[in-house]
Each structure stands twice: as C-alpha cells, then as structure tokens.
Design a protein around this nucleic acid. Structure first.
Lengths: 337, 337
DNA sequence: CGACAAGATACAAACGTTTGTATTACGTTA
DNA sequence: TAACGTAATACAAACGTTTGTATCTTGTCG
C-alpha cells in the first residue's frame, strides 16, 4: 500500500538516512556498494531505498562529481537511415551502461559540428561520439576536450571505430567484373575518409582484371539527392556508356535508379547498379539493391563500449567489428555467366 | 590574447562577482536581466561575463530550480523516416528556444514507453513530447507528470498536435474512384488513433460513389515490413482481385509493391498503390508513390512551440498546422479518364 | 586488562547556482 | 535637516549529492 503519488515530495538520501538512522554519507556509500559500510547496514539501506522509491537527483550528483551520465552524439543527419541505424545501436548500448544519449544534427556543416561539440562539453557530458564529421584532422588533433571522444568512420583519427573500407568495395567491383562488366562507373561522394579507399578498391579491381582505368567513368556526387539527376545526364552523354555503376551509397543509388528510369533505362536490364551501406530499404527497392553491408548498428554499439573503456581509463582494447560484406541482390545483371 | 585553455578552471559566477566587485547574487540577477540591478552594473557584468568566457553550470542551476532545459522525446523508432522527420523538426525548434532534446525509442512497446516517461521525469526534463504512443488513454489521464506533456498524433488526448486524419485519406480514395477504380483494398495498421478516421474516410468515399463496402477488401497489417508478404498473398487469393490498394503507410506500400512485383504484378499497370505519410523516399520509389503528405517536420516544430507556451503557462493557443495534402505521383493508374 | 588496529560510522565542507530577506545608499518631502 | 520611501546591493540559506577526515566501536593481542 503506497502513499498517494500526487504531491509527494521527492525522497532524498536524507530521508533514507533518517529512516535508517544513519548519516547521509553512509547512505551514499551503501548505495554505491562501498566496502566501507557493513553488509548488514548496506542491505538494510538498499532495501529501504527501494521501498521508499528513492531515485537519485542527477543534477546534484553532476554538480559534485562533474559527470552527467550523458553521452553526446554528433552526426550529420539522423533522418538519414544510415545514421539512424548508428543512433539506435548507440542508444541501445548506452542504456545498458546506464548512459543517456543526446543527439545533435549538424548537416555535415563544420561550424555546426564545432558548435555541437562546444555545447556538449559545456554540458559536461561523459563522452562524445562523433560520426563522420567533416572537420579537419588538425581541428581534432588540437581539440582538447575534458571528456573522451570516439569517432565513427574517421579512419584518420585516433580512437576511431570503423571497419574495412577497402574490402567491401573491392568485392563488389570484383563481382561486377566477374559477371562480365567491363565499363563500370564509379560515383564518388563529398570529400571524406571513405573517398580514397573506395577509389583505390575500384582501381585495383579493374587493374586485377587488366582493365585500364578511365577517368571519364568517375563522377563526383555532391551528396544531395537531386544531384543524381546531373550525374545521370552526364553519364548518358558518354560515348561508350558504362554497363554498371558503383554508387556512392544506397541513397545515391536510389536517386540514380530513379533518374535512369525516367530516362527510359531499366535496371538491371539496361544498366546495373550497386550501392553501399545496405540501409533498410535497399532490400525493398525495385529491383532490390546489391550493396555493401556496412554494420552501422554494431559500430554504434562498439563505439559506446570503446567509450566506456576510455572513461574507465581501461587499456581500451581496439574495437571488434564485423567486416563489411557484399549483399548481392537483383540490381546487377550477369553479362557473361 | 586569451590564456591557454588547457587546464583553465571553469569560470563561475563567483569569479565574475570578484572581478566586478559585487556579490554573486547580483551577477545572477544581472545575467537574467533582472530590474533589480542598475543598468550600468548589469552591462558591466554582462560584458565581463562575455570576456571571461562564462558558461553557466547546468547542473547547479537544475539543482536549485528543478528545471533542466531539456525536453524528452518519446517515439517508437527514430530509424523510421517518418519519426526521424519529426525528431528533426523538434530539434530545430527546440534549439531556437534554448532547449535540448533527449530522445528515447520504445519500439511501440507500452512498457518501454512508460519506462521512458518515468526516466524523463526523474531527469527533471522541462517538457515531454510523446509521439504516437500505444499507451492507453486512461494511463495518460491518470498520469500526473510534474512537467507539461505534448502528444503528437494522438487525437484522443488533450494537448495533442496533429492534423486532419480524415481529409487526406478521403481525398486519395476519392481520387482512385475518380480515375475509375471500383475494387479498392484498404490495408489497416496496428490499433491506434489513425485507425478509425482512415477507415471512415475509405468507407465514406466508397459510399459517396455508391459503392458497397466489401469487408474482404480490408486487410490488417501488423506493422512489421515482413508482414506485407502475407497481405499480398491473401490479396492475390481473392476471387475478384482489387485494382488498387490504399496502404497503411509508405513503408507498408513499399513492402506491398515489393511482394506484388515478386508475384509478377506490376505497379501501376496491374495494380495501383497509394501510401500515406510521404516519407522522403516515396518520391524516389519506382514508380514514385502517390501518397498523403503528412507534415511531420512541421508537427515537430509546432509541438515544441506548444510545449513552450505550456511551460510559460501561456494561454496555449491551439497549434496551427498545415493540412495533409495528396501527392499524386506514378503509382496510381488511370482506368477511365 | 589495557593498548592498538582495524572496521564502521558520523561530521562537515564543497559543488555553482538561485532567491528571499536584510542592509545600505540615495533622493525626496515635510 | 530629519524622517522616510525606494532603489540597489549584500547576505545567507538552500538545492541533494559526494568525499576527505574525524570520531567512535569492536575485537585482538601482549
């Protein structure tokens, strides 16, 4: 039979102390399982705390300890399924560790990014996860935050959680070559750490099949979905049109397919398309998109685990991430069996 | 020439007080533009605060005022583009008001929802935005939070921000009828406030065209993408197959189209499909999806404005939301011109 | 049995604000 | 010019924890 909850004053550590006839400090220590309090006392206090419905006041705790149990997440755009997946992974793992997540979108704008970081440190977050930022390496090198920082998909920085950028891309281009494609276009994205490995994988794959690399087959996509239209136009204007396209990512592939089909080309009958990231809808596109699965959810989880180790100043063993894998679906046509 | 920032102690109100040779309380009042401090003093203090790089300690402030400048957002799944859009709208508007947003996903599980609400109140958030919850009306009726709560898309609750559920659905079914469809299937979703208005709109539209309502044409979709397969199977097993489908939402439409095409039916040639919500990819599907645009971003913004009024105990004028509108794209075939 | 080392608990200060009340300074009026 | 009202500021307590140090118990050993 609990008391009516309306208008009941919040129960504090002092209330428990009074009930248990001990000092508040003993209550604190009991609640954090300090060896300084006798087992019997501790159990009595914890029991009492439960019965009385004690819930700690975060603000007071933060004030004295300077830790907030909040981790800040900085990402370009959580509307993007790619990052949404990451955010879910982070949230899930953070909750396990009793951490809360505050998210801030930056739209990939560097100024917004710095602002977000400043905001979070001001808030005394316990840690920071920064995903695919655009800010320069130097900025992060000179940035001295009072909290640990983990980057996602920034291979050029320390404390990074990511996975092999080369392998997946290489595999999918290899596959295209194996099924007979010879003229393969590469659509690159905005500058970032993903840029070079993908390009290298592409060139290497061609090279391994003894194909000369054609700079005309490389298109720079600016990241905005509308821009896929321009890319398609340029691509179709080519004398020897590619038979396959390796798109920057799935969203890009989606846009390309859309504009290809507006131009009367069917996928994969007239032209094959592969994406990157394997966002949820890739499987449900028509045709289902062949793509490189990039385990964002797991990366999210791992980034929190890593952060947690950093926070405890543990020997931060480097993260253990599954490799990206190729998901072959309907959007690549076999030319030669 | 600022001092080196590494290892500089955080500047507090006391530091400013010392520098300005006044009492800390005067500093507080000056910073919050209280009329109790002389204009000259106030300006001097504010100037000083800026120069010294003062940044308030949230924890201390929260401790004494019991307000955190954080609003809690409870939604089923931010991975879902529909909700991601909402979250962006909320974040954008909240930032304008100097509020931060903490998000918690519940996967539509009622227990998780209640837990999230408990968690947020414990954290002393300034307000709560709850999107499309599954929790019962009674729960919310009896729930006495110490903070204002705004619901999104819960027409059955007070302090709700939503828009006309009937209008958009009615329009799109009307359109299908106008272009000649007579056998139109309705795919309903999991129980919720959207259920009835959509169904009514569907029935009314048929009625207005003098068509008898056929219960066999109504399918219950459970919300999981995989379930669209079962729906398609059942639908195709019908004696008089519908020529059009009004799907629960865009994601559902996506799944349906996928499984229809796996079954050899083309959209819209063999069967027309309409969705609901107008998530970003609807435009890029193949064919582009006709759908009802549901302004989630604006709803997000409006929910924060509303919350803000509640917080100030202003006369909370009811929200001003654009109506949902039909977006006709390629997925509906005209049978009779 | 007294001294002493632990083990257990109490005391008190501190974290950085906010806010009600007390005090001071100042200008106005009688 | 003394009394007074008001404007400006100072004082001090409070918010709910945590944590270093002091104090008190208890048991053990010589």
């Amino acid at each position: 039979m609990t008391e009516p909850s309306w208008k009941r004053r919040r129960v504090t550590i002092k209330d428990i102390a009074a009930a248990a006839e001990v000092d508040p400090s003993t209550v604190t220590r009991a609640l954090q399982n300090s060896p300084r309090v006798r087992t019997a006392t501790r159990e009595k206090i914890q029991q009492l705390a439960r019965e009385m419905g004690y819930v700690p006041n975060m603000a007071a705790r933060t004030l004295v300890t300077s830790r907030s149990s909040i981790v800040g997440l900085v990402l370009p755009d959580m509307t993007n399924p790619f990052f949404a997946e990451l955010a879910r992974g982070i949230e899930e793992e953070a909750t396990k560790h009793g951490l809360r997540v505050l998210t801030r979108n930056t739209d990939g704008v560097e100024a917004a990014e710095r602002d977000a970081i400043a905001f979070f440190t001001e808030l005394k977050v316990d840690g920071l996860v920064i995903a695919m930022s655009r800010s320069t390496t130097e900025y992060f090198k000179t940035l001295e935050t009072p909290v640990p920082v983990v980057h996602v998909n920034r291979d050029d920085l320390p404390h990074n959680v990511s996975c092999d950028r080369y392998a997946g891309s290489r595999q999918i281009v290899d596959h295209m070559l194996q099924v007979g494609h010879r003229r393969i276009a590469l659509v690159t994205g905005p500058a970032g750490p993903a840029q070079q490995p993908k390009r290298t994988a592409y060139v290497d794959a061609l090279d391994a099949h003894g194909i000369e690399y054609n700079p005309n087959y490389i298109f720079a996509f600016n990241g905005e979905l509308q821009d896929t239209r321009r890319v398609v136009e340029e691509l179709l204007a080519l004398e020897h049109r590619p038979t396959a396209i390796f798109a920057w990512n799935d969203l890009c592939a989606l846009g390309l397919i859309r504009h290809l089909s507006l131009s009367g080309l069917r996928v994969p009958e007239d032209i094959s398309v592969a994406g990157h990231d394997d966002i949820a809808i890739a499987r449900f596109m028509d045709p289902p998109l062949s793509t490189v699965h990039w385990p964002m959810y797991e990366l999210g989880q791992e980034s929190i685990r890593y952060l947690y180790q950093l926070r405890q100043s543990l020997p931060a063993q480097s993260p253990n991430i599954p490799s990206p894998t190729v998901r072959l679906r309907g959007s690549i046509k076999t030319l030669k069996p």
